[in-house]
Amino acid sequence: MAVVSNFESAAVPHMDAAFNLAFWLLRNRTDAEDAVQEAYLRAFRAYATLKSNDIRPWLLAIVRNVAYRMLARRGRSGNVISFDEAFPGRGGDGAGEIDVASDAPSAETLLIGEGDRAMVTTALAELPATFREVVVLREMEGLSYREIADVIGVPIGTVMSRLSRARGDLKTILQRLIDKDLSNAM
């Protein structure tokens, strides 16, 4: 049982990070729970092969892998999901979008703070999964570029350029949402 407790004490502290990454890839809390559970089981079975002392990037890489497999099984791409679910009330007015909260960030999250604060998460949901994940890992989980590179399996330079592109796109989307909100308010 020593193996279990070793793994548990190393891995469980990162469960929130794992869940957050899974949620932002899958855009659904129930799926994210399943993904984390499956990933932890796989990580446990593979724990003996972990050579590094830093379990977090390794663990997150497994979570990410499981999440992408689930996305593939759904038969939809991450982009399609984020777009549909981020804008359930698309075409309607702004208020309708917030009411449909099942798959979007939880209702409290959307209502917290001033308008453009909530919009940041809406804008993030609109990014393609490839760019969304680097933003989540950097801004929410605070991973270094090296760690992000390990999680997603690309060189550090690619992390840098993806993050730069993602931030640029995020700003553009945010600007559009704020403009739209202003015109709705008037």
């Binding site: 089981l41 604060r117 998460t121 700003k171």
Partner: peptide
């Protein structure tokens, strides 16, 4: 934008998830 994402965007795992995972690991062993 980074601060705002960090403040509002993080989705927290449900409290029972940790226990579910511990149970699964125990079963696995």
């Amino acid at each position: 934008i980074g601060r705002q994402l960090n403040a509002t965007g993080r989705e927290v795992a449900p409290p029972q998830l940790a226990q579910r995972i511990r149970d699964e690991l125990a079963k696995e062993m």
